[in-house]
Design a protein around this nucleic acid. Sequence first.
DNA 1: TTGTAGGCGTTATCAA
DNA 2: TTGATAACGCCTACAA
Lengths: 337, 337
Amino acid sequence: MIDIAATIKDVAKYTGLSIATISKYINGGNVLEKNKILIEEAIKVLDFKVNEIARGLKTNKSMTIGVLIPSLENIFITSIISHIESILIQSGYSTIICDCKENRKLEQEKTEFLLSKMVDGIITMPYSNNGEHIKRVLEKNIPVVLLDRPLKDVNCDVVLVDNLNASYNAIEQLIIRGHKRIGIICGSKDVYTSQERLKGYLRVHEDYSIEIDPELIKYGDYQIDSGYRLLNELLDMESRPTAIYVTNYEMTLGAIMAINERGVSIPDELSIIGFDNIQMAKIVKPTLSIVVQPMQQIGETAANIMLKRLKGDMSNYPSMFRLKTEVLIRDSITSIV
Amino acid sequence: MIDIAATIKDVAKYTGLSIATISKYINGGNVLEKNKILIEEAIKVLDFKVNEIARGLKTNKSMTIGVLIPSLENIFITSIISHIESILIQSGYSTIICDCKENRKLEQEKTEFLLSKMVDGIITMPYSNNGEHIKRVLEKNIPVVLLDRPLKDVNCDVVLVDNLNASYNAIEQLIIRGHKRIGIICGSKDVYTSQERLKGYLRVHEDYSIEIDPELIKYGDYQIDSGYRLLNELLDMESRPTAIYVTNYEMTLGAIMAINERGVSIPDELSIIGFDNIQMAKIVKPTLSIVVQPMQQIGETAANIMLKRLKGDMSNYPSMFRLKTEVLIRDSITSIV
DNA sequence: TTGTAGGCGTTATCAA
DNA sequence: TTGATAACGCCTACAA
């Protein structure tokens, strides 16, 4: 039983060569062919693995990237992370994932935690609107990539989607089907994505010269309950909307629950467009039209820009990647006569 | 702009004390009150943080736990991870998450990767049935906790659910409602959880002296497609089952898609019980009865046993925690006349 | 091509 | 209580 990991020293001893030579070989240097064979043998026999911790101390790199997110119980986020990890590991980086559980204080603390772990960079989907914790990271010259939304006064790379046109395109599908009273269930007023998604709603109405009833604009908090509550509010209006657009996944879930509960007939009584999660869209009856975000592209873009910064390439800094969404039309919307 | 992190040396310089004293203080040693104040001040002013990498080199602990899973795009898994992380971070451990994307080779490689990162322990939901990679870890005296299923010939702590009785209880609910022809959509024959879930099905039939039609037992692969396909197969039988039990989340999704597509009336034509994911169960129409696994408890139990082993407490090694599931009865099942 | 030696930031031993 | 000093495992000039 090997219970103490072999070190370069052990390999040196085994081969009769010096530590320096082994180290050089490991890092791609040239050694005599016969020594190469010898070293390889020693490595195999001793089951030697470079101690990344020790290496990190010397190189001042931990080869780990911190990934700080508001929740791990969100398929949109974990899917992005999965793609981030795939890219990073190819370059030898590991990812330390910290979930701040939608809590500002935890977000703070976990940032410090990541710093103490000497991460080489941080990729984060910010929860708090206040970017002070990120500024501290940037001050230490540690690259940061923001996901999903930018942060006021924080100057760094950001990868997000074109939320405005995501909404624009979704609502447009309703408008060209004759809808004029379209309800929208937004997130909180102070959340960036929520603001953008509302802007798209407003702009497309303007472009088609459709008047907006402010009553049709509801503000929630991106949680299931608010989707449920606001969908009900919209249905309780004297002059009901003929279509409703729900601007995130959780609220879409809530909205569907309300619809099922009330027995509203989709799409005859009401057309509806939701957000994210293709699987969910397939199992509801009738199948749901949704806005889909390019999770893989988001993750890969974020990982790649991070890798670029890590290599010291600061060209086009800070960059903003504004990826395109897609509207999937299914059976939950129909034309109005 | 601070772009070089302060070290103990800097704190020593600032305070006029020695490195050793600062180190001792940091690690909870005693120093004179006035020095304590001075050190605190220096730490604050210099924004000093212990370099965990260097500490790790010295203490031979990385204070990180590897978490190796088959997929990050699975809410059941990520939810467990979230709870694991919550517990571990309280003890100063960070978690390096590796997703092997349901690929044996990757599972191998990522295990080696975690080893090279000098993780202090590994918590894994194994993908491969072959536990060789885990044995290698155990040989190095690195504690391992298995999630969801044990591994043949691998002797270590494991946290799973009582899959057998999960099925038993679910099927029992159907039996007491008069069902006698109950279909089951299993996972692959060589997957532990799948075997156990089938055993429960068999045992409850036996206990109620109900004969089993082998045709009613279908084997899939825990993926959406097989749920879809096998549900259709069951419905195409000459003598249809009156109820169907689907033994994991993905296959439940597929089954629902098939049901919707064929316009089968639930629960009148068919009663159905699915697996996992409460949210999903709420948005389908009618609401779905499901078996729910205690994700939080699984995560916390795994993290705690790991912490215990890390402290060197090997009492009751290896332990197996067999947690209880719950059957949630909703509108998708009914009594037979 | 190979080896010697110094240092990365910390901890821990042993004197003072 | 405090301090000098030797590791920890690795990398990297620089010398041989």
